[in-house]
């Protein structure tokens, strides 16, 4: 027993001072607190979304178009059918454009560009492109396809704006995965006498595909939540229209328009739409996570 006490006292010479122990505890406390603080908004947003959004969900909410009525309390304001379908259509077309193009650029970077100056330039450019505000992509498409053409907003123009936004994300994530494809695999195929394009199509791409799905899903999720580039490319409308050449409604734009309404029921529609949108995006994110866990290239 006394040996113990003696022991402690002898090491005491080296023990950190009270002040040091206190600042250690304090700093660790702050760091933990900051982490908790970082999680609070997520919890609050999800809670608020659920409590506000669920009450406006009903079968008819998903099966009727918004009516545009915001004044007459008795009349129906409608649901979000056109917005859901519009978002799906616009994002599907944007994906159809940006995924092949993005993977193409990534293949060029990895298989042909290598360490050449041009490849480094493209990489840097793509990185910088990820930081360009989404509204600027909307302006680009507006300038190129609406100014001076005599035409107006259209769903496919929104898709083009979103595809610009998705491109850098797809390129960078696909590139990372392509680089993980073992060089030995390529060499094995080349040594069999296969030409490079066959190696790319029958060895490199199939190997990398599962890994690329993750990046692609995240890019889609990002595009689906974007409002700004659609404001003056696809605009907002009420009716469901499957023609991508026409004005097209979308969830984010409808939410944005509804937020500014003074009518409570319209604001509630925005909450319902927001819950729908977040659910769609979270499902995409979860899918991406599942796929990436399944397919570790290693």
């Amino acid at each position: 027993m006394s040996g113990h006490g003696q022991a402690q006292r002898q090491l005491q010479r080296f023990a950190p001072s009270r002040a040091r122990q206190r600042s250690d505890r304090l700093a660790r406390g702050f760091i933990l607190a900051a982490t908790v603080i970082a999680l609070i908004p997520l919890v609050l947003i999800l809670y608020y979304l659920l409590s506000k959004g669920l009450s406006s969900w009903s079968p008819s909410f998903f099966t009727t178009d918004p009516t545009g009525n915001t004044f007459f309390a008795k009349a129906s304001i409608g649901g979000i059918k056109s917005a859901i379908l519009g978002t799906i259509e616009i994002v599907a077309l944007a994906s159809a454009i940006s995924i092949p193009a993005g993977i193409g650029v990534a293949v060029w970077l990895v298989e042909y560009g290598g360490e050449r100056l041009a490849a480094h330039l493209v990489r840097f450019f793509v990185d910088v492109l990820t930081g360009v505000p989404s509204i600027v992509f909307g302006l680009f498409i507006y300038i190129a396809l609406i100014v001076g053409t005599g035409s107006s907003y259209a769903g496919y123009k929104g898709s083009l704006a979103l595809s610009l936004l998705m491109l850098p994300v797809v390129i960078r994530s696909a590139e990372v995965v392509l680089q993980l494809v073992p060089g030995a695999l390529r060499e094995a195929a080349l040594a069999l006498g296969a030409p490079r394009w066959r190696v790319i199509f029958s060895v490199v791409l199939p190997t990398a595909l599962p890994g690329m799905v993750t990046g692609v899903l995240l890019a889609i999720a990002r595009a689906a939540g974007e409002t700004a580039p659609l404001l003056f490319t696809a605009a907002a409308t009420f009716k469901t229209d499957f023609n991508l050449g026409q004005f097209m409604n979308s969830l984010p734009v409808q939410i944005y328009n509804d937020v500014t309404s003074p009518t409570t029921s319209v604001v509630n529609r925005a909450w319902g739409a927001a819950l729908t949108l977040v659910t769609m995006i979270l499902i995409l994110n979860l899918l991406a996570r599942l796929v990436s866990r399944r397919s570790r290239l290693a």
Partner: peptide, 17 residues
């Protein structure tokens, strides 16, 4: 994962909230 989920919330939802 939770912190990364913050990035999945669309801009317009942040505005709404």
């Amino acid at each position: 994962v939770l912190i990364e989920l913050l990035a999945a919330v669309p801009s317009v939802v942040y505005g709404l909230w």
